[in-house]
């Protein structure tokens, strides 16, 4: 993102009254969300509440239609940008279900992505040596074996390997806003630690993270500044770290009842 044309005090991401549908079905029904650099926001909620839709819409997944509202990213109209433009401008989505690319070697995929993003940011292309050095450094954190980089993207990877590979991509692309869509789901405790460590390292005063999660356990490793509870397409409650802990204790029904009341 270009620093010059951005108001220093403006939030990095400003979502206003966002309504989204797929086909005839309304999924998001008026989301307001403001995220500033340096912050970590957790979006929690039961299955089917619209968490993943929100993450996908921010990244520009084409099958969703925004029916109302707006999203500003660094002051720009995010919704007018192509998915690849958003990526190059620093939005990264860690996929809930990383996609397999038969025959595309992971190394080559990472290199092409890093090149595309660096080119857009006016940085010089990394030489193979520089690229490999950076890659070595980043993959150590998420404990990815160099052999894995020779394999086709996500093909034959275990669930944990796929999620670690997402975090590796994030580290390599160095985004400004990272949106992690249930990156913690389906991981055992060791894998969760590795992934959480990777995400925590990424945390910085110049970056923001949106953690979409069903469970609060990842928040034990990455402490959020704000926690939002999404239900039936609306943010029904926002709070700090305590809200997540309370949710874990009392379950989503507690919120549902208190919202209804």
């Amino acid at each position: 993102m270009a620093e010059s044309d951005t108001d220093k005090n403006a939030p990095l991401l400003d979502v206003r009254d966002l309504h989204v549908s797929v086909g005839e079905t309304d999924i998001l029904k008026g989301i307001d969300l403001t995220v500033s650099v340096g912050e970590v926001h957790a979006i929690m909620g039961p299955n089917g509440s619209g968490k993943s839709t929100l993450a996908s819409v921010l990244a520009g997944r084409p099958e969703f239609t925004v029916t109302h509202g707006k999203v500003l990213y660094g002051g720009q109209n995010l919704l007018a940008m192509l998915p690849e433009e958003r990526a190059r401008e620093g939005i990264f989505l860690a996929f809930q279900y990383p996609v397999e690319l038969a025959g595309v070697r992971t190394w080559q995929f990472l290199r092409a992505s890093v090149d595309a993003v660096r080119r857009h940011r006016g940085l010089k292309e990394l030489s193979i040596r520089e690229f490999d050095k950076l890659l070595d450094e980043k993959r150590e954190v998420v404990k990815i074996d160099p052999e894995m980089l020779k394999r086709s993207v996500n093909e034959g990877f275990s669930g944990g390997e796929k999620k670690r590979n997402e975090v590796l991509q994030m580290a390599m692309l160095d985004p400004t806003l990272a949106v992690l869509d249930e990156t913690d789901s389906g991981l055992d405790i060791d894998a969760l630690k590795i992934v959480a460590e990777g995400v925590d390292r990424f945390r910085s005063p110049s970056k923001a993270i949106i953690l979409v999660t069903h469970y609060q356990r990842i928040l034990n490793y990455i402490s959020p500044d704000r926690v939002h509870v999404l239900m039936d397409g609306r943010i029904v409650r926002s709070g700090d770290r305590e809200l997540a802990l309370e949710l874990e204790k009392k379950g989503y029904d507690w919120i549902r009842e208190s919202v209804a009341a």
């Binding site: 990244a59 192509l82 690319l101 995929f109 092409a112 992505s113 692309l173």
Partner: peptide, 19 residues
């Protein structure tokens, strides 16, 4: 597949070629 590659900064055309 296309969206995944685009989300990593590649144009639609580049994404197709990669696949």
């Amino acid at each position: 597949q296309l969206f995944y590659l685009q989300q990593r900064g590649l144009s639609l055309e580049e994404s197709n070629y990669m696949i």
